[in-house]
């Protein structure tokens, strides 16, 4: 969808939302608090231990910030796709197929919730604070890897969101399942995957590639060893994984739309 049209639609949604000002600000505050709470958990953990899987406090906070920004961006721009299950149940998904724009981007624009921005802001601050505190020999590769990781992270989260939401075309009440992958996954990516058992570790590497979101690249940046059996080039594979995730998500979404059955009157 052309950016200009997206902008017009988002502006309209914001104007409409703003008619309910109080709930707008309450929600913005709650979103900021939620992502703040995640960070407090990390800080409390480190009052008890000095490292998690050999990662220091600043290193884990670095991971937290990378994951938080990527997730925040996906939350802001793509998470709306999760509402597809509600539209399917109500039969209101019809309208998305009647306009000359992709249904996914229409959902993203028409259900855009500016109040979600709260989620992405706080990890940006953490990143700004933690970067200078990291004990890292910065090389051009490491510097470039930071923004690349954030963008690829957002794309991978977005693709997981779309993939999981495509289930809604086949299953009723699939939204909880989808959310457990996305919100649950986002929580996992805040920690080194070494804390997971080998089975889960493989799952989040090869099946739902959330380990690429920030753990593999971050490990390279802060000079932490990858778990055994993980080749070192995985630290640089995020763009490829992001692209592959998008291809899969797009195919499943389109297949889902062809299976859309609307509702009887």
């Amino acid at each position: 969808m052309p950016l200009r049209i997206y902008g017009h639609l988002v502006a309209a949604k914001t104007r409409a939302d703003f008619q309910y000002r109080t709930s707008f600000f309450l929600y913005l505050a709650s979103q900021t608090l939620i992502s703040f709470a995640d960070m407090v958990v990390v800080l409390i953990l480190f009052t008890q231990v000095s490292s998690i899987a050999s990662w220091s406090r600043s290193q884990v906070l670095f991971l937290y910030a990378l994951s938080g920004i990527g997730f925040g961006l996906a939350d802001l721009f793509i998470s709306q796709v999760g509402l597809v299950s509600r539209h399917i149940k109500a039969g209101t998904f019809d309208q998305f197929l009647l306009r000359p724009l992709g249904a996914l981007w229409q959902l993203s624009a028409l259900e855009f919730a500016p109040r979600r921005a709260g989620r992405a802001v706080q990890p940006v601050i953490v990143l700004a604070v933690i970067l200078p505190a990291l004990d890292v020999q910065w090389t051009p590769v490491k510097v470039a890897l930071v923004p690349i990781t954030v963008v690829c992270g957002a794309v991978i989260f977005g693709a997981v969101w779309v993939t999981a939401s495509s289930l809604a075309f086949y299953l009723v009440n699939s939204q909880e399942l989808a959310n457990s992958f996305t919100y649950g996954g986002s929580f996992l990516t805040q920690y080194p995957i070494d804390i997971l058992g080998p089975w889960l570790r493989r799952f989040f590497t090869f099946a739902v590639p959330l380990a690429f979101v920030c753990y593999f690249p971050a490990a390279y940046i802060v000079d932490q060893p990858l778990p055994e059996s993980i080749p070192s080039w995985f630290s640089f594979a995020a763009p490829v994984i992001a692209l592959a995730s998008v291809v899969v998500a797009r195919a499943l979404w389109r297949l889902g739309i062809r299976h859309y059955r609307s509702t009887g009157s």
Binding site: L9, R15, P100
Partner: peptide
């Protein structure tokens, strides 16, 4: 979708919380 117009009597394609005129101008962009 560019060549057809569709109205379902039981559904709305307008922006509920905005003036009717805004729906028209959004559709112009779409």
């Amino acid at each position: 979708t560019r060549r057809i117009g569709v109205v379902f009597g039981q559904r709305s394609q307008l922006w509920w919380d905005l003036p009717l005129r805004d729906s028209f101008s959004l559709l112009r962009h779409v």
